[in-house]
Design a binder for these strands. Sequence first.
DNA 1: CAGTACGTTCAGAATATTCTAAACGCTCTG
DNA 2: CAGAGCGTTTAGAATATTCTGAACGTACTG
Lengths: 178, 178
Amino acid sequence: MDRTTGIFVDGMGAAAATSGILNQLQGRIFALLYLQPGPLSLDEIATELEQSKSNISVNIRGLVDWHLVRRSRVGGSRRDQYEAAADFWRVMQEIMERRFRWNVRQVLATIDETERAVEEERGRRDWVQFVTTRVAGLRAFFAAMDAGFGAFAHGKPLDPAALKHPLLAAVPRPRPRG
Amino acid sequence: MDRTTGIFVDGMGAAAATSGILNQLQGRIFALLYLQPGPLSLDEIATELEQSKSNISVNIRGLVDWHLVRRSRVGGSRRDQYEAAADFWRVMQEIMERRFRWNVRQVLATIDETERAVEEERGRRDWVQFVTTRVAGLRAFFAAMDAGFGAFAHGKPLDPAALKHPLLAAVPRPRPRG
DNA sequence: CAGTACGTTCAGAATATTCTAAACGCTCTG
DNA sequence: CAGAGCGTTTAGAATATTCTGAACGTACTG
């Protein structure tokens, strides 16, 4: 591997490792493919990155899932070819929906469960009141995030105003009088 | 711990574990504190979550760093008290700046290095040309992300348009005639 | 100023993740 | 239809992360 590619591969690997989306090896695989004029096979990638073929196989699947890499099969050959995709907006949409929004919904689901549980608590009326209020505050914020991320992934601007005061934003405004 | 808190703690722990920001224990600590009417000490948290005090000590520091938990010391006591913060927008700003944007800048720094390296490559003129173009495409996208995240953290809307066609957005538009 | 009540650090144990090499199964080929 | 050339699965090795308990430092307390 030439010096330029080495620097790019190392740097992108390090960035990926702290991304919370890809691991280091996935960052390296993508970086390698991104600087190639043509597609590479599994074996070529494994050799270049000094990793086992099985490890590349497993990790490249994640890259294909995020639409960061395209898999193709040329002619009648049964050898897969891989190349980097360059539609980063598409990747970001995917991450928004399948990672961030999915995570937000985990929280919303937990809030649902918690609200159901607190309704069954016997006695301790003001504690129940307190928990209900707190959980409502969390729900307002995460509901706003869910809506905001959803809109963003569909190409609409994400306005932080809804996150600053989610409780206010969640409540329908009184109509201004004529 | 009562049933309601248990459900909330477990759910938030699971969500945190896949967040890429907090680990499971940090999610559990925050959840426990969030349903408490008053602050708790390190030892109380450790007992409730069945973890060693040292482990709580280390992990709660991260929560304080993200402004998810406030540390206070009441009166002349030397016992720290912790309570959940509820300004989630502040937390999001912190994450935007110190996590996402920092990560984006890692990529931009790698691109800088790569461009410097490719300039020193001898021969292979069309390969150099190819790499330069590709890296420019990546830079345009990540520069747009950096700008967008920065604006968002300062309360301005984040418009996906700049990410859809970053190369176009980066170039100043020709003035319309007339 | 010795004793106690804390928070933190650290070495090593427990656990989870990443990686390899061998085994497997599929598909094309002669 | 046997063999070669693939990608994938899997058991276990290598490595990284998380967790504990003991040791330590500091600041109140009697």
